[in-house]
């Protein structure tokens, strides 16, 4: 499963140590997936929908977008890195309409 998630750009491999470090790292990957309980298709759809929303406001550099599942302290996180080049024209108008 970790492999699948990596392919969808949702998991990042960290460095490896002894076998205990490897166990810990693998558990984090497996548990993040168990806990989010979404299929790879659903994860991909979520990613697309998030980008759609952001693209309404700014121009997204889509080839450099990075989504990851991470375990930080006690939290399970979906971490998105979304580089944008410049604000889209008409952004403020969209803001007014939705606000």
């Amino acid at each position: 499963m970790a492999g699948l998630l990596e392919r969808f750009g949702l998991l990042k491999r960290a460095g490896r140590g002894g076998s205990a470090a490897s166990a810990k790292e693998r558990l984090h990957f497996v548990l993040l997936h168990d806990r989010i309980d979404l299929s790879p298709e659903e994860l991909d759809r979520m990613k697309k929908e998030i980008l759609e929303v952001i693209s309404r406001y700014v121009a997204v550099e889509s080839d450099r977008v990075d989504f990851a599942l991470e375990h930080r302290r006690r939290d399970n996180l979906i971490v998105a890195e979304v580089p944008f080049s410049k604000p889209k024209t008409g952004t403020q108008q969209v803001g007014r309409e939705t606000g």
Binding site: G17, S19, A20, A21, A23, K24, L27, L31
Partner: peptide, 12 residues
């Protein structure tokens, strides 16, 4: 470093 410690398991 060949077995998960109690702290590792608590953390996970």
């Amino acid at each position: 470093g060949e077995m998960l410690s109690a702290d590792d398991v608590t953390d996970i």
